[in-house]
Every structure is written in structure tokens, then in C-alpha cells.
Design a protein around this nucleic acid. Sequence first.
RNA 1: GUCCCCAUCGUCCAGCCUGGCCUAGGACACCAGAUUUUCGAUCUGAUAACACCGGUUCGAAUCCGGUUGGGGACGCCA
Length: 451
Amino acid sequence: MLKVRFAPSPSGSLHLGSARTALFNFLFAKAKEGKFVLRIEDTNRQRSNKELVEKILADLHWLGLHCDEGPYFQSERINIYRKYAKQLLDEGKAYEESRQSPVASHQSKHREPSTENREPKGKAVIFKVHPQKIKVKDLIHGEIEFDSGEIKDQVLMKSDGSPTYNFACVVDDNEMGITHIIRGDDHISNTPKQILFYQALNWQVPKFAHMPLIMEPGGGRLSKRYGATAVGEYREKGYLSEALVNYLALLGWAPAGNREIVSLTEMIKNFSLSKVNKTKAIFNIDKLNWLNAQYIKQAETKRITELCVPFLQEAQLISENYDFDYLERIVNLLKGRMKYLAQIGEIADYFFSPAKLNYSAEAMEKIKKLDKEVWRELIKQLTDLDNFDAENIEKVCRQIIAGNKMKGGELIHPLRAALSNMSVGPGLFELISVLGKEKTVDRLKEVGTRL
RNA sequence: GUCCCCAUCGUCCAGCCUGGCCUAGGACACCAGAUUUUCGAUCUGAUAACACCGGUUCGAAUCCGGUUGGGGACGCCA
């Protein structure tokens, strides 16, 4: 049975690049009816912690990338690595060595200072590398050839007794029966080292597929410097997981037929490693925003409303108690105008303000352009209006406009300013309808006192 | 520095494997127009690319070589 794995190290929250690696592994497994294994590479105690693991698991869950097996934790498997290190030692394929001068003699700025470095507790196990050619048939890149003469002897077990990444990785992939290793391009140079281990242990070498990295607009790997690089940051801004997954999939892969909006299920149906690009992809927030807006627009209003609640609370527009129906009507009015849900706080505030608004100079100027008499007429007519829907409200307004021989905008712009303190926004009559008679009339009366 | 990977519109992809259907297609962004009470959304249209040089061939974006450019890896990190 075909088996792939996603093996993040919990040294940070789930990065977009890692998420995409997880996604492609997931798609490949599902497309081929194989298994998707999750393994946490937490051998580095200094940089791993439980909360980070939980966060990564939560992010994967949110993305809908559920694993079929695992999560396994490397920190719980030390004995397995030791066993195979000992085997290689016994077979003379590896040797032991004490740490050489613990004081870093060169390029120390690249090393993270760590207490580990200064107190070697035991001897490291080191693998002997013999010169040879190593060929890899990469499922994405094709054949790649390496010369192991370029590779130094490799540490298998560190002097503190923990395994190195490359060794633990090979042992685990073999133990777990991983058949296909799909990972980032940055691992290409680890591949020959790992193949050497497979050969020394007489294990079958799995198939490899190295996918291109995600780059940031200026070039270079997508990094913190760019801005939001973690899956969690996008969730917190109100991106829908389907949109993020869709966007990530489009980076380096495309379904047949020039399609842009593709569900996970459709991706699985269409996925093929041979169609994955070899070229790096630059992260483009504009396209993600567009996709997200598309998904928000298509989603059910109820769902979007539920997702908007925390953002409205954060913006202190609502508290623990709120009128969900009112929220739903607001979201229905605004959901076509958001790139991400956090924007609801900025565009919906006037629905929750008290009658008396803090008008900007610009809004006040617009308000003053409309005659006092017209304001009074407006208040009266709206107060008397029984069926407060957008259609009826428009009828009333149009009558006033006609009766006073005005242009539409001459009433509409001041009215919008008076009710929302904004010069832009959704259709005014719908806005008024959603705001409701009471709030509308109260606010207009407030305006009356200031003229 | 050494090794490795990559190269189509500004960006993401299609086409490349299996040369001719490519006067290179779609999407995002940008620009213009339409629509609208405003903004947005939507619709229509426009601009825009096969990095360069050589080879193979009747014919190359597609195959081969080189150059240039970009990226990655060279840890007792993962």
C-alpha cells in the first residue's frame, strides 16, 4: 500500500510552505487510496514544545488535512534509532567519536548558542561515507545525480544521545513503511545522504518527489520579513480554509482545464505528481484575497455570520449577547465586500453605534447640504412607513426627491453620511432596511438637532 | 567557494514529455468602458511573456549544448 507522510518539526507554527507540502502529500495519498501519516520531528528538545505541537495539529485540522495514521513523535522513539545506530556500528559502517573542540572556530554566528554544545555527555556515532555516484529518480525533477565524494561522514547519533534529522528520518520512514517521500526542494541535498543510510541498512529506498519552494515577492524564501507566513495568521484574519487550501494548491499545480476555484474533493480527483511544477512560486496575496472573496461570497450567510462573531467582538461592536438575526442581515449585506472576515469590524461599525454618531468633517459637510425641511419630511415619512423593506424605503425616498425637484444623489449622499458616517458602502436602501426603523429614525432625529 | 535545482505575460498556471493545430491560452493585479445613489461586486475590452547564444530539424516555446540570471544545500538544526 502506498504511504506518504508529513513530518513537521514543532519549532514554530505551521508555515504556509509546510502546509502546502502537507497538502500535496494528502492529495497524493487520497488520489491513490494510500495512507497519510503524520510524524512530529521533535528530537530537538530546546526548540520543541507541546503548545507548538498542538497548534500545528489544530492548523492541519482546520485545513482539513486529516491523517490516517499518527501522529508519531520522534522523541518517543529514541531506542529505535539507537538500535540501528548500534547495528551500523557493529557492522563497521559507523564509528564513534568525541566532540571535537566545542568552541566554534568558524562561522559561529550561524550557530545557535546552546548548552548542549558545551557539554558533550557521550560519543557521537558517525557514518562512514565512501565515494560513489548516487542516482535518484525524482518524481518531479527526473534523474538527479550526486557524487558522495562531496559528502562528509555523517553524524547518526549526537553525543547527547539523540539522533540527527537525516538518520531519524530514514529510520522512521522505513519503520513506518513510507513508500513516497514528498517534500520541499530544500531537501534535495539531503537525499543522497539518506540513500546512503538506506543502502547501508539494506532497506528499500522509497520514491522521492521534491516540490518547489514558495518564495516571497522580492525573491528568497517566504519569511517572516514578508508578513504573515503562518497558517494560523490567515485563519485569524478571517480567511476560509477552503480558500487557503485552494490557493496553496494552485502554487505549483493546476487542475485540467484552466480552472481556478477547486474544492479539495476535485483536487483529489485530479491530482497527479507528474503535473507538479519544477519551478518556484512567488506568493501573491492579491490572488489569495480574490479567491477568499469568492469563497466568502459563495458561502452560506449563516456560516459567515458565525465566523464573523469573534471579529465583531474583537472590534467591540458586540458583546457576549447579541441578536444573531440582526448580525445575519448585516453580513448578508456586506459579505460581498470583504476580502477577509476581519474587515467586518471596519465596515459594519455604524450598525452598532449609538444614535449619536461622531461625524467626520466630510460627513458633516454632506449632511448640511440637505435642507432642514427635507430632513423633517424624511423622518416623518420613514416613521410612518409600516413595511420597512428596501423597496418601500426607496419608494419613499424617490417621492421626496421628486417632490423637491432634486437629483437622486442630493438626497442619497447626505442620508448615507447621516446614517453611516461614511461616503461609501452598500446600497443605501438595503442599508436602511437592515438598520431598521428605530435606529434609522433615532439617528436622523439626532442629526436634526445639529443642523 | 563547492554541489544541486530552476528558467513562458508584473504574478500564478496551460502548452513542453509525444516538435508543425502557438499570429502562445486562462486567472490575479493593472488600465479603459458598461452598470450603480457611492465604493465594492459584476460584465466587456486593452496592455503584457517563450531569458540569451548556438545546434538538431523542412519546421523549436517544445529536443540538445553553452551563457546569463534566480533559488537551494553544504550543522552533533530540522
